[in-house]
Design a protein around this nucleic acid. Structure first.
Lengths: 200, 200
DNA sequence: TTACTTTTGCTAACGGTGTTAGGTAAATCC
DNA sequence: GGATTTACCTAACACCGTTAGCAAAAGTAA
């Protein structure tokens, strides 16, 4: 009885069709523009059939998030394998991570819940400048005091902020169960590392 | 002729009423739950009056984003002023930044476009584990090789990932005009700093 | 006070969204 | 061939942001 199998195959095909269509939309117009009605039109089925394949809209986005993590992992493994000693491996992983993010912006945004009503931060929120000055001033003082001519304050400012924002936003996503004590330690460790690097 | 002034005052009052109501909603149910219709009901005015005070819904969120930056800046200035030498200042700023973020989650999410359809990353996406193992392995090797007993691999993993994510997401928000060359440099600088810190 | 003008705020609609209930017609099974 | 399951659709519900157009109130000037 190949009927059941054929049906399963057809169902799987439709599922893939939904995902392909949805992915095209996300790539072209961003994830907020994704709509079940537009998908249903593109696949030439009515809206409720989508619910036979995905519990809801979020489940479709989640599927992409999963795909994104799978792809990222693949890339990182590949990058790591090319190197032998751990320091180079970390460097390679970092590089691959960066490349993945900007070659697959849609994935990355989906994976980490980026992208919002707020447009460019720079243009809309002048207060950002005050923050920048605030952080840059002590950095510049340290650079001067330690006579590190080649150290770029602007660069260090970005680095400093990134560490902070990265820590915060990763903890915020991970939400509840992440141990509080650990996270404060991570902050201290990262910041003291940054400072040491700026001094020595 | 105090009439014009009274009207201005009343208009300002209504504006504040809108913001207060909206903020309450954001705090209670998150920024996605904010709706003009619910605001209008709460302030006991019809929906279109909101448009006399804000260009659209986004403008309301943007206002909060601005408030958030103002508050953050205030906190950081305060933290910085308490310290004298620049290293301590940076430490204090980092600490205040962290505290601000978690004492004002709603602000922070609004300011940096966090929060999305995706629920907990941990539960939904098992691929995260693979990533973790991947990064942690070379870190552990380095810790062993350098005989740094007190270095915590788990902690360092968090730190490493945070640096990466922070750099990426800040660059992604700032979008277009950020110089590419600078950003790659920031990555290199931050990662090499991390590695140096792990070695020495 | 009356007549005119501006402001204010409303109703109602437009075009969207995700989600679900309920029915019909086709496909499958006995 | 008749019964039953499955596939699929229509239509609705309950929302959403946004805008046009109108009525009533408030202010202005004679």
């Amino acid at each position: 009885m190949g009927i059941a199998e054929r049906k399963l195959r057809q169902k799987e095909e439709l599922r893939i069709m939904i995902l392909d269509t949805a992915w095209q939309m996300v790539k072209q117009e961003g994830w907020h523009a994704l709509s079940l009605r537009k998908i249903s039109e593109a696949i030439e089925y009515s809206v409720p059939v989508i619910y036979d394949h995905f519990e809801n809209k979020e489940a479709i986005l989640l599927e992409f998030s999963r795909q994104g993590f799978a792809l990222l992992t693949k890339k990182l493994i590949h990058a790591k394998e090319k190197e032998e000693n751990p320091a180079s491996q970390l460097q390679a992983i970092a590089d691959a991570y960066w490349n993945f993010a900007f070659r697959n912006k849609e994935y990355y945004q989906l994976m980490f819940g980026l992208g919002m009503p707020c447009c460019d931060l720079d243009k809309c929120v002048p207060e950002k400048g005050a923050f920048r000055n605030l952080v840059m001033e002590p950095i510049e003082r340290m650079i001067k005091a330690n006579g590190k001519k080649k150290a770029n304050a602007c660069l260090k400012y970005h680095s400093f902020w990134s560490v902070l924002h990265g820590l915060v936003s990763i903890k915020m996503m991970g939400s509840a169960h992440a141990q509080d004590t650990l996270n404060k330690l991570v902050l201290e460790d990262a910041v003291s590392g940054f400072i040491k690097n700026l001094e020595g």
